[in-house]
Nucleic acid binder design. Structure first.
Length: 606
RNA sequence: GGUCCGGUAGUUCAGCUGGUUAGAACGCCUGCCUGUCACGCAGGAGGUCGCGAGUUCGAAUCUCGUCCGGAUCGCCA
C-alpha cells in the first residue's frame, strides 16, 4: 500500500517550510556521514534531499540499509537549509525533508550502469535496460518535452479548425518508395497488409470526402537501413488542406513551428522562413538541405578555367562538369601537412579525385596547381571567390551534380572543424522547385523524386511528355539547421493528369489502376485542389531537445539492426502461428531458427 | 551488401615492438565519520582479455576464421 504523496520531488521550496509532507521516489545518491544520512530522492519531476538524523535510532539504522534505486516513501517536515548549505544547482536546494517515517516499497539490485547523465555506456546496454536508461534526467526531460509538444501541436490545429482523423495502420502495399513492412492476413491466405510509409493516399481521399483541413500525429514505417537520424518506425505530423496553394501550406507550417518552439522551449522563431530553390541549394551549398547557419557559399570557376592549361580543369568543363569552390576565411596559413591530410580526407569521405587550393597571403599567393595556371587566372579565381589576404580557397573539379555534393560535404566538414556554425540560431528554410522526376538507371524509367501524386508546375505541363526531366514540381521541403524536417507538395487532383503521370513514369495503366485505383476513382467524383505536408516529429523533438540521436527522444527505439534489445523483437514465432498464416520458411531460415533456439535453450539450462 | 574502427572487471578505458601475479577511474561490499550534495577517509571483493584455431618455450598482445557492436557509403518516393 503506497502512501499518498503530498508533493513531487521537484515541488518543494522555502515557501513550504514547516509543512508535514509525504514524498515518493527513487533513491538517487546517498551520502552517509555517520550521524546523519543525506539521500537525494528522485522522481521525474526533480530531486529533493531527505535527511535522517541519529536521534531516532531505529529509523536511522533502517536508513543505513537504503541503496541506490530503492523505491521509498517518506513522511517528514520541510526544513529550511542554513545559508551555507543551500544548493543553488537544485530546484529544491533551499530545503531538506527531516524524515520521521520511512517506507521501503521496493529494493533494487545494483543497476548495470549508473543512473546519471554523462555516462559513456554503450547504447546496446542502455537499450537492453531501457527502463533504467529512461530514469536518467536527460531522457526523462526529452520525453517530457515530447509530451508537451503533442499538446502544443494539437492545440494549434484544433484552434485552426483542423479535423484530427486516424487512418489505418493496416493498408495495402504500394509500389514506389521505401520497402514496406508486411503483415500476413490469416483470413486471406497469401495476401499481405503493409504498414504505412505515410498515410498519403488516405489523407488525399479525405480531401475528396470534404475534410478540407486534416491533421494527424501518426506512426509511419519504412523497412530500410537505419541511421542515427532514421528509425524504422517514426512519427509524422501529417497535414492536408483543400482549396489552397503553396503559400497556405507555408503559412500554416510557419505558424505551427513558431507556436511549438516558443511554447515548449525558449527558442524564438521568426517568420516567414527563408526560401531557396532546389537549383540554388544544390549549386550554392551542394545539398537539398543546406545548413544556412554559416556561409562558405560555392563559387563557380568553370568559365574562368575552361581554356586553362590544367587538363583536369579544361577537360572537366569540356565534359560538362564544373570547377567550383569556396573561400575559407582566415585559414590561408594552413600548412602543407594539414592540407595533405585534408586532401586525403576529402578523397576518402567524398570520393572526389583531389583537392585544389589557393592560399591567399599578403607576401605570397600559393596555388597547389599554380604551375599550370596563369597568374591572371589565379587572380581572377581569388576575386571570384571573394577571398582576401589570409584566406584559403578550396576547389573541386568533377562531373555535375556529383561535384556539388562533394563540395557540400567538404563545406560541412569545414563548418564543423572551424566552428563556423552559430549553434544558438535556428535557421528554417523552405526549399522549393524540385525536379518532378529523376531517371532511375536500375529501373530504366523515370521515378518520382517526391511521390507520384505531386503536381507538376503549371508552366511545365507541356514539357511533361517530351522533356520530363526538365519539369519542376510543386513540392517543397522544410529544412532546419541543415536537417530535413518535413516535406510536402500540392497534389494532382485530376484523374487524367494523374494517369498521364503514370504514363511518363512507365507505370502501365493496369498496374496503376490496380494499386491506386481507389484514389484515381475518387478524383472522378469531385475532388478539390489540395496539398499538404508531413513533418518529422522525432527529428523536430531531437532538434528542440538538442539531442544527437533520434533514439534519445523515442521511448523505446530500435537499434541499428532494427531490433528492440529490451524485449528481443523481432523474434521467431511458433510453427502453429506460421501455419495459420499459410507461411513456410525457406530451408536455410528454418535451419538457422533451429540452431538459434537450441543455443538459447542451452544457455537457459546452464 | 561494401569500407573503416572496435570487443580487456558491473561501467568507461589503459595495457607499446609477445615475457613475473592483467591495471586505473567510477560503481559495488565492509568499517569510521553530525551538514553532505561527484561527501571524505581506511580496507576489500570483482576478469574464460568476445569465441575458435594457428605461430611460439611463452599470446590480452602476432596471423587466420567467426560472432557481436559502432561509423560511413549503398538504400531511405
Amino acid at each position: 500500500m503506497a502512501w499518498k504523496r503530498t508533493h513531487t520531488c521537484g515541488d518543494l521550496n522555502i515557501e513550504h517550510e514547516g509543512e508535514e509532507v509525504v514524498l515518493n521516489g527513487w533513491v538517487d545518491t546517498r551520502r552517509d556521514l555517520g550521524g546523519v544520512i543525506f539521500i537525494d530522492l528522485r522522481d521525474r519531476y526533480g530531486i529533493t534531499q531527505i535527511v535522517f538524523r541519529e536521534e531516532d535510532d531505529e529509523l536511522h539504522s533502517r536508513a543505513e540499509e537504503l541503496r541506490r534505486e530503492y523505491v521509498v516513501g517518506v513522511k517528514g517536515v520541510v526544513e529550511a537549509r542554513s545559508d551555507e548549505n543551500v544548493n543553488p544547482d537544485l530546484q529544491t536546494g533551499e530545503i531538506d525533508i527531516n524524515v520521521s517515517e520511512l517506507l521501503v516499497y521496493s529494493e533494487a539490485e545494483t543497476p548495470p550502469f549508473e543512473i546519471k547523465d554523462d555516462i559513456g555506456t554503450s547504447e546496446d546496454l542502455r537499450m537492453k535496460y531501457r527502463y533504467l536508461d529512461l530514469r536518467r534526467r536527460a531522457l526523462t526531460d526529452n520525453l517530457m518535452l515530447r509530451s508537451r509538444s503533442y499538446q502544443s501541436i494539437r492545440n494549434y490545429f484544433h484552434d485552426l479548425d483542423f479535423a484530427e482523423v486516424e487512418t489505418p495502420v493496416l493498408m495495402r502495399s504500394t509500389p514506389e518508395g521505401a520497402r514496406d513492412y508486411l503483415v500476413p492476413s490469416r483470413v486471406n491466405p497469401g495476401k499481405f497488409f503493409a504498414l504505412p510509409q505515410s498515410p498519403q493516399t488516405y489523407k488525399q481521399t479525405l480531401m475528396a470526402s470534404g475534410f478540407d483541413r486534416y491533421f494527424q500525429i501518426v506512426k509511419c514505417f519504412r523497412d530500410e537501413d537505419l541511421r542515427a537520424d532514421r528509425q524504422p518506425e517514426f512519427t509524422q505530423i501529417d497535414v492536408e488542406m483543400s482549396f489552397i496553394d503553396e503559400e497556405d501550406v507555408f503559412e500554416m507550417t510557419e505558424g505551427l513551428m513558431k507556436q511549438l518552439f516558443e511554447e515548449v522551449s525558449d527558442r524564438e522563431v521568426s517568420v516567414p522562413f527563408d526560401r531557396m530553390t532546389y537549383q540554388e541549394a544544390l549549386t550554392t551549398y551542394g545539398t537539398d538541405k543546406p545548413d544556412t547557419r554559416f556561409d562558405l557559399k560555392f563559387k563557380n570557376f568553370s568559365d574562368l578555367v575552361a581554356d586553362s592549361e590544367f587538363r583536369i580543369f579544361s577537360q572537366t568543363v569540356e565534359e560538362g562538369g564544373a570547377v567550383i569552390g569556396f573561400n575559407l576565411p582566415g585559414e590561408g596559413d594552413m600548412g602543407r601537412g594539414e592540407l595533405d591530410r585534408l586532401t586525403e580526407r576529402v578523397q576518402e569521405e567524398t570520393g572526389a579525385g583531389g583537392l585544389i587550393y589557393i592560399k591567399v597571403n599578403e607576401d605570397e599567393i600559393k596555388c597547389s596547381v599554380g604551375k599550370f595556371l596563369t597568374e591572371e587566372t589565379i587572380r581572377q579565381m581569388i576575386d571570384q571567390a571573394g577571398a582576401e589576404n589570409g584566406d584559403l580557397v578550396l576547389i573541386l573539379a568533377g562531373p555535375t551534380p556529383t561535384v556539388y555534393e562533394q563540395l557540400g560535404t567538404l563545406r560541412l566538414m569545414m563548418g564543423n572543424d572551424y566552428d563556423l556554425i552559430d549553434r544558438d540560431q535556428d535557421h528554417f528554410l523552405w526549399v522549393t522547385d524540385f525536379p518532378l522526376l529523376e531517371w532511375d538507371d536500375d529501373a530504366g524509367r523515370y521515378v518520382s523524386l517526391h511521390h507520384p501524386f505531386t503536381a507538376p508546375q503549371t508552366r511545365d505541363l507541356d514539357k511533361l511528355e517530351n522533356k520530363p526531366q526538365e519539369v519542376l514540381s510543386r513540392a517543397y521541403d522544410l529544412v532546419l539547421n541543415g536537417k530535413e524536417i518535413g516535406g510536402g507538395s500540392i497534389r494532382i487532383h485530376q484523374a487524367d493528369l494523374q494517369e498521364k503521370m503514370f504514363d511518363v513514369m512507365d507505370i502501365d495503366r493496369g498496374e496503376a489502376r490496380d494499386k491506386f485505383g481507389f484514389l484515381m476513382e475518387a478524383f472522378r467524383y469531385g475532388t478539390p485542389p489540395h496539398g499538404g505536408i508531413a513533418l518529422g516529429l522525432d527529428r523536430i523533438i531531437m532538434l528542440l531537445a538538442g539531442a544527437d540521436s533520434l533514439r534519445d527522444v523515442i521511448a523505446f527505439p530500435k537499434n541499428k539492426s532494427a531490433q528492440s534489445l529490451m524485449d528481443n523483437a523481432p523474434s521467431y514465432v511458433e510453427k502453429d502461428q506460421l501455419d495459420e498464416l499459410h507461411i513456410d520458411l525457406k530451408d536455410w531460415v528454418e535451419k538457422q531458427k533451429k540452431e538459434e533456439l537450441a543455443e538459447s535453450q542451452q544457455k537457459s539450462n546452464s
